[in-house]
Simulated scan of single mutants.
Amino acid sequence: MRVNRILLSSALVVVALVIQVSVLARLHLPGAVPDLLLLTVLGLAMVYGHVGGALVGFGAGLLADLAPPADHAAGRYALVLCVIGYGAGLIKPENGRLRSATGPMAVVVAAAVGSTLLYAGVGALVGDTAARHVGLTGLLFSAALYDLLLAPFVVPGVMWLARRSDNDPLAETSPAAKAGDISSGWLSSGTGLRIGSQRGGLGSLKAKARTRSTRVGRIKGVKRL
C-alpha cells in the first residue's frame, strides 16, 4: 500500500475505534453495538480494492483485538474484518464511481450479518458460546439495523477522504464533481459533469468555425463585418 493510504487508514481506524469503545459501547443499546470500525473498513475497501481492503481489515481487527476492554482471543476480529474487507473490495467499480446507494447499502447489511455470523462461528471453534446465550437472531437484526442507520454518515465521508488522499479526480471540490460523486451525495447520478463537457465541446467547435471563416475571407480578399 502507498504511504498516504497507510497514514489515512491508520488515522481513520484509530478514530473509529476510540469512538466505538468510548461512546457507542456505552450507549447500552439492545442487541449488538453499532460497528463504526466495520463501516470504516467498508468505505476504505470500496476505494482501495480487495487487497487494500483485506490489509486494512486485518490491521483494524487486530487493533480492536488488542485494545481494552477486549475479552476474546487476539486475532479473532482481525480474521473477520480481513474477510469482510476483501469481499467489500471486490465490488469496487472499475471507473471508481458508484451509480446509486443501493449497492453500498446492500454491502453494509451483508457485512453486518456476515461479520456477526463469522465472529460467532470462530468463537464456537475456540469454545466461546456467548452468542448462544445472548441470542444470535437478535444480534443479527440489531447489527444490520444499527450499521445501516449509521452508514450514510460514515461510509461516504471515508470514501471521499480515501479518494482525496489518492488525488482521485472524482474527489475534486467543484460543484459539478460534488453532484456527480456518490461518496459525497450517496444518491447522485453523475450527469452534471457530462453536460458541462458537452457545452464546452460545442463552444470550442463554434470558435473553430469562426476562425476558419475569418481565414477564408482574408484569403479571398472579402471584408467581413
Score class of each variant (00 low, 15 high):
residue 159 M to C: 14
residue 167 N to D: 14
residue 185 G to E: 02
residue 198 Q to T: 10
residue 188 S to N: 06
residue 172 E to L: 13
residue 199 R to M: 02
residue 201 G to C: 05
residue 182 I to W: 03
residue 185 G to T: 11
residue 191 T to E: 03
residue 192 G to K: 04
residue 161 L to V: 11
residue 167 N to A: 14
residue 154 V to R: 02
residue 180 G to T: 10
residue 181 D to M: 01
residue 171 A to D: 01
residue 175 P to C: 00
residue 156 P to C: 07
residue 155 V to G: 08
residue 202 L to S: 09
residue 195 I to F: 11
residue 183 S to T: 10
residue 159 M to R: 13
residue 169 P to H: 03
residue 201 G to Y: 06
residue 188 S to W: 01
residue 173 T to N: 10
residue 196 G to I: 00
residue 175 P to E: 00
residue 191 T to D: 00
residue 186 W to Y: 14
residue 154 V to Q: 05
residue 163 R to N: 04
residue 198 Q to L: 10
residue 156 P to I: 08
residue 193 L to N: 03
residue 196 G to L: 12
residue 191 T to Y: 10
residue 194 R to D: 12
residue 180 G to M: 06
residue 158 V to A: 15
residue 154 V to G: 08
residue 186 W to V: 09
residue 180 G to K: 03
residue 197 S to W: 07
residue 157 G to S: 13
residue 159 M to P: 12
residue 174 S to T: 14
residue 190 G to M: 01
residue 165 S to E: 13
residue 190 G to T: 00
residue 158 V to M: 14
residue 199 R to S: 08
residue 188 S to P: 09
residue 159 M to H: 08
residue 156 P to N: 10
residue 162 A to H: 08
residue 159 M to Y: 01
residue 201 G to Q: 14
residue 189 S to C: 01
residue 195 I to T: 08
residue 202 L to Q: 07
residue 154 V to A: 00
residue 171 A to Q: 05
residue 161 L to H: 13
